[in-house]
Amino acid sequence: MSALPLLDEEPPLLVVEGLTVAYGARVGCRDVGFELWPGEVLGIVGESGSGKTSLLNALSAKIEPAAGRIRYRLRDGTMADLFDLSEAARRQLLRTDWGVVHQNPRDGLRLTVSAGANVGERLMAIGARHYGEIRGSALDWLGKVEIDRDRIDDRPSSFSGGMQQRLQIARNLVTNPRLVFMDEPTGGLDVSVQARLLDLIRGLVADLGLSAIIVTHDLAVARLLAHRLMVMRGGEVVESGLTDQVLDDPQHPYTQLLVSSILQV
């Protein structure tokens, strides 16, 4: 785990209170609250159906919650209620200050255009109009995520799963976001590929001082990346705390079960 950043100076980046997501009568997650500080990585763990993806979808403004508030500190320092912002402002936030890395790269990439265009798209969306500079940024970012620069004009459909995932990360980070959401970023990859990707994510998060919320069912991923953990079950948060503390000394019986069933393999 990376060293915990200093938290006492700055106010929180994201404040979530009483968040409930419902699909008709069915509840996705109930009464979730937490704060996220600049530079902090929060892991959300739990089995499938525990509500972690519902929570992530509401946090990243993909679905509107049934109750509760999500407040985010904009670059000018003001705290904005996410769902009070206009749709235009919310979409702007999503493609500049935030990033969303999907479990399946197909959901996060344009497979019919080149890798360079994939990385450059967010720059063009916010007004970049110099081809050479856009291409320069794309080359730079391909390097940072360890993709051979010669592949810049190739379509991601010809990339391996690990490369697609790294391209997706580059595509998100090119606008220097402050907050990145990741949904099972290493899911579906071979173990060796996973390890390399985790190393890369850990390095980037630390180097860039990113805040991140990472949803995973894999406690090893959580231990490696997250400063803090929230354990979810049946739509509710059953335990939260510093990662080492939660994993080494779980308090809730469900967390104990999770830890014992996964880590002692």
């Binding site: 749709e87 235009a88 979409r91 080149s114 265009a117 063009m124 969306a125 081809y131």
Partner: peptide
């Protein structure tokens, strides 16, 4: 929402290829 970035993506591809 004036989301016209995709049009430039197409032009980017033209130039790249």
């Amino acid at each position: 929402l004036s989301e016209y970035g995709a049009m430039h993506v197409r032009f980017y591809e033209d130039i790249a290829h």
